[in-house]
Write a protein that binds this DNA or RNA. Structure first.
Lengths: 174, 174
DNA sequence: AATGAAATCCCAACGTG
DNA sequence: CACGTTGGGATTTCATT
């Protein structure tokens, strides 16, 4: 069930972007409101949203929960270095991190460090046990560095929708 | 709309947690379905969700957008080191990062590094200019390190809702 | 807290430019 | 081919028991 990487270049016009910008902030906004905000009919809104969901532009509709409300007070960024970068080693690590609920996010990155994780745990004890299981007792891990968050300045998964970028000015004339 | 740090210890029972776990995956799930999943009435579901929204447990209801669909192909984690950690300096940096759309996430952390950012940009050129403006040309920044993501193994802002933790064994006797 | 009614919203079909 | 309008069905919401 993974490997769902369908990426057919879906063209987003001005309307689609406007819609996305709204539903990114509140996906329960009535289509009526969206309609008059972008100067289209409710049916058009419905069609476009459905199309974007089908195309995978809209990945999911979710409720964002405040970690503090769950007593999930520990947020930590962890840099992980593996002993080697062989496919098997890396894939195993990915699977491990993907399957751990407390691992909110996981990126495989360049620059010496192998992975960067964002971890949210209920308390220090849980966090301690978690790091031990994931890193300290993990043969594939050479080293790791924990950066505990003192302040969640900005959080969330909202992806910025640019106002409109008709033609990527990707030229180097300067 | 900011500064809304109401922290009244809102007690979540087993039902609330079950509801959260569902709406975190899909907040458009019909209350009917939620109701029979958690063995409650639809009215109860409605009340509880409304209460959790009012209490700030549910921060927002949003649509998650695939960055690739927006041609936002560059995802990067950046560690930022400031020259000093004076309140004015730190606050200015926070404001700057908070006000930059491409900065998806920002954490103020311990461990030598001052900030960890997650940045998503449309293309390399945009990213280049952004880093220059935010870091290279920023007097307060001593140094920074970019870790470009080769693979977004796990992404999103979903906060894990623990199955149920009746009594947090969190006593250290200080 | 459960039940029922009213309002609202979502969704499909039709017609048009 | 995409948009706008209309109508039916479902869901949310409110009032009552």
């Amino acid at each position: 069930m993974p490997g769902k990487r369908a990426s057919p270049p879906f063209v987003l016009d001005r309307y689609d972007r406007a819609i996305l910008r709204l539903v990114q902030q509140d996906n329960k906004t009535p289509q009526r409101v969206i309609a008059e905000a972008v100067a289209l009919s409710t049916a058009a809104i419905q069609r476009r949203i459905a199309a974007m969901e089908a195309a995978g532009v809209i990945v999911a509709n979710v409720a964002l929960v405040d970690p503090e409300a769950l007593s999930a007070t520990i947020t930590s960024i962890v840099e992980v270095h593996l002993h080697d970068e062989r496919a098997a080693t890396v894939d195993a690590a990915k699977a491990l991190f993907r399957g751990t609920p407390e691992v909110q996010q996981c990126y495989y990155v360049t620059g010496g460090t192998s992975f960067v994780l964002v971890i949210v745990a209920s308390d220090m004890r849980t966090y301690e046990r978690l790091t031990r299981r994931l890193f300290a007792e993990n043969e594939a891990v050479k080293s790791y560095r924990s950066l505990v968050a003192l302040d969640r300045v900005k959080t969330g998964a909202a992806v910025t929708v640019p106002e409109e970028r008709p033609s990527p000015p990707d030229q180097f004339t300067t």
